[in-house]
Write a protein that binds this DNA or RNA. Structure first.
Lengths: 340, 340
DNA sequence: AAGTATTCAGTAATCGTTTTCTGCATCAGG
DNA sequence: CCTGATGCAGAAAACGATTACTGAATACTT
């Protein structure tokens, strides 16, 4: 219960507390003898500076906020890891929140971040429109970096992947393999990732002069259940698709489950390509062809942008777009095509 | 950049700042007229209390620490989710750190937690011995709850699962199915989970009067790579095992990969049971029989213990042990047995 | 050698709250 | 009508650090 303060150290070293502070932050010349006395006192007393007091006085924080939209999605594991590593390397701590794709919860956490006076915030927004909450943070001097998703008309740095290109490549891959009835489990249209990936899908079809077939487009909510349900719907069509492009990892899992239930063989009877590669994608029921995102780098880059912004609050805002890569495994039927 | 403070509110409402504070924390009678003036001023100015100042003065924090040993392990996803949900329900925020199974990093983060004056800490320790870092936190009045793993001789609350029983059940299951040469990919012996699960394995063998065969016991480090490598070693033995019990999820994935590479059919030629169920365990290459842990509840319970401890610092320490359940799928060969 | 510049430690103000203490009313009881 | 109790708001003292300011001692210049 006994917390030693800077005054205890000062008393023990027989100096003023200003001197102690100066020694610990070494931003000022201090006599070598005094310095040693202070360091000795710190050691003896086991003194740990109180970050809370320091934050209040210096108005500078070493804590950054991280609001994730769905912490249960393995996609974010590697993102968080990237953020954590980069933060650790720069002696920053992380306050983590999970908005659970809930705008109200996000709003609450934005307020918490403001109250906590974090040095900056990395946000995976729940929606592509801001009702003022994010903008407010910027106004009170807390820089925000958006991760994964965009928010329309917001002045902020953004780190994301090239979703259009990623989806395009995935669908193009299926087209190259000779499939024409390509369905998609599309993501939420109120998220930039959803609309961008859908656009990539459409563009790939268009570039191959395949007309868009609305019955093959199913909108999900990025959750496993929706992928499962919509895949059942797709396969119940009078003319089911011969390939499916799923716009995220969870819906892909749902699709896998549905197809397994129906005893539909992948890649024999249907082909499947997902978005987001996972460490165990190769160990799945049908090793999964998928669009791999550089998730770790995404998190890393977000912290870098944030640090830059903290140093130079008025620099022009940047959008860093990382490239995806298509990892081809068996589920897309590439091996079949080879054998033909 | 303009942060409104309590003084601004006081001025606007023409009261003292003490009154504002009393209204906001309503722990004191305040005249209804003044109260309304204050609330109005708060609304108009968009005042957000500064948690940093509040923490410093009131010496009471609404932030709890969470140190995870390996944030990239999906096992912890659900744990974190449980912690987050329960924290949210009690208006607590989380400072998240990843010790990366590195004792030095854990030590650093323990210091950070002390400096941040968190209300309490949930810790997944990197080792079953404490070099003083954890004990110190308790001494300065920050309660610690251990999660998943034990630390010898430490006065702290603990939430864990019954690892001995879980491993016992898994191995017993294999024995029931008629297998005798049962190998194990054991976990690190310096972690309580490692030694407990290994004990469960031994006890199951003993209770079936199967002598322990040391060549079938391989010690890994809970990482995918070790599971992969050790499985290759196992299958290269003159007399390879007829079943494998892997002590955690990542090593199980490694085992799956190795077996696939060797074209060894599961469950035809070998049987596999893992520890830790995952949402996609059923969609794996061979749907995985595994010991399922109540991970979400683990996280939830940790926050509950912490809150109890904060309220009653001197209550006797508790160890909450949750039960695992064996989820039987195809990889253990149960379906084969049925067909016999 | 005197005056000025420089160095460096200490004093005290400050960050934005909470909370104890103080003092002015109002109210009840005798 | 006076006294004591009570209620409630304001003044001021914390909380534990950083940092602008102060002042003494030393070094340097002319």
């Amino acid at each position: 219960m006994s917390n030693t303060t800077i005054d205890d150290v000062a008393k023990h070293a027989q100096v003023s507390r200003a001197t102690v502070s100066r020694v610990l932050n070494d931003n000022h010349r201090v006599d070598e003898k005094l310095r040693e006395r202070v360091l000795e006192a710190v050691r003896v007393l086991g003194y740990q500076p109180n970050h809370v007091a320091r934050r209040l006085r210096a108005q500078s924080s070493t804590v950054i906020g991280l609001i994730i939209s769905d912490i249960q999605n393995p996609y974010f594991l590697s993102v968080i890891r990237g953020v954590e590593d980069e933060a650790y390397a720069n002696r920053l701590s992380i306050v983590l929140c999970n908005s659970d794709e809930d705008a109200a919860k996000q709003q609450l956490y934005l307020q918490v971040m403001e109250s906590e006076h974090v040095a900056g915030l990395i946000l995976v927004p729940t929606s592509s429109v801001d009702t003022g909450g994010i903008e407010r943070l910027r106004r009170v001097g807390i820089p925000v970096v958006l991760l994964d998703r965009n928010v329309n008309g917001l002045l902020a740095d953004v780190v994301k992947v090239d979703n259009v290109r990623g989806a395009f490549d995935a669908v193009q891959h299926l087209i190259d393999l000779g499939y024409r009835r390509i369905a998609t489990l599309a993501g939420c249209s109120h998220l930039s990732t959803g609309s961008e990936r859908y656009r990539g899908y459409r563009e790939a079809l268009a570039s191959a002069k395949i007309p868009l077939n609305e019955t093959l487009v199913k909108y999900g909510d990025y959750k496993t259940e929706s992928g499962y349900r919509l895949t059942h719907e797709l396969m119940s069509l009078p003319q089911p698709p011969d390939a499916i492009f799923a716009a995220n990892n969870m819906m892909t899992l749902g699709a896998l489950r549905a197809l397994r239930e129906r005893n539909i063989h992948i890649p024999g009877e249907i082909r499947l390509v997902g978005f987001d590669d996972m460490p165990w994608s190769g160990e799945l029921y049908s090793p999964l062809t998928s669009v791999s995102q550089p998730t770790y780098e995404l998190g890393q880059e977000a912290v870098r942008l944030l640090r830059q912004r903290i140093i130079q609050p008025d620099a022009p805002f940047r959008t860093v777009t990382l490239q995806t890569s298509l990892v081809v495994r068996e589920s897309s039927g590439a091996a079949l095509a080879g054998r033909r």
